[in-house]
Design a protein around this nucleic acid. Structure first.
Lengths: 149, 149
DNA sequence: ATACATGCAAACATTTTGCTTTGGC
DNA sequence: GCCAAAGCAAAATGTTTGCATGTAT
């Protein structure tokens, strides 16, 4: 991804934040930048490793920011197998499924057409649930970890 | 599910445990019984609420049992959204996807043909991952929680 | 000026481990 | 009798909250 493209995503997110009444603070901007830069689910401690190291924001702040961002629909929180919660930026039209190694925990985005969209719609009608979305992850042992046994 | 059927599942699981070298203890049997009875993903604290109350087994024991059960392929650990680890019995031929309420946390099993199986196979070839399986969950707001707003 | 956001520290929840004792084989 | 499993208690990990202070609007 090009720098300009990243910058655009950050701007897009900040725009939504502003329109939803969040204040434009240094912490918020930095968190969004990191999320865009990683371009993959990240958990709190990973984020904090970067941000705290630079004394740019406190873990509690990161945590609270992410909650707000989730509430306004800018990020999504994923429950991957780890004990930690993971967060991804929800840029428009971007939905991703993941391939995760049960041994080393590596997370790869799967580039394929998601096969679940159609079902999601019919399920929404059948179940009466609202605001439906899904999470799809494949787990297994990655090539590297197969060798390391 | 009928009692006899349940009993059969427990026996099936115990059989595998034995063949894999696990000892047939009271705790193990009780944990399997609970898992069969719930017939839905359960987390540690739910299990312990029942088992500890009856002084039937210690949380640490439950925890360690589940790890063993997972290792030998009798249960699967799921990473649902509330960050507690959930466990389900993996009876042969049973794969389930879930519909989960983001508000109250209710977990419903979805009775539909899983649309991901075919993809799983091709992904296994393409990625070089081994022992691939997937986890698919739909999240949304259930009818009851829509009313409660 | 006001309300929201931050930082720090402490509280919580849950999982994981160490060690001694018990009990299945 | 031997070794895996259980029980108890403590450590580790990660999340969440309280409160005083700072800062965007």
């Amino acid at each position: 991804m090009r720098t300009a493209e990243r910058e655009g995503q950050v701007q897009w997110a900040l725009e939504i934040c502003r329109s939803q009444g969040l204040r434009h603070t240094h912490s918020l901007a930095r968190i969004l930048q990191e999320l865009v830069k990683k371009d993959n689910p990240v958990n709190l401690s990973e984020l904090n490793k970067v941000l705290q190291a630079e004394a740019e924001c406190d873990p509690a702040t990161t945590y609270r920011c992410l909650i707000k961002l989730e509430r306004i629909g800018v990020v999504r929180r994923l429950g991957l197998h780890d004990r930690a919660a993971y967060y991804v930026l929800l840029t428009p039209g971007s939905h991703h499924d993941y391939l995760i190694c049960t041994d080393c925990g590596s997370i790869d985005r799967i580039d394929m057409e998601c096969p679940v969209h159609a079902l999601e719609e019919s399920l929404q009608k059948k179940s009466g649930f609202r605001k439906l979305y899904h999470e799809l992850e494949f787990y297994g042992q990655c090539p590297k970890c197969q060798r390391d046994v």
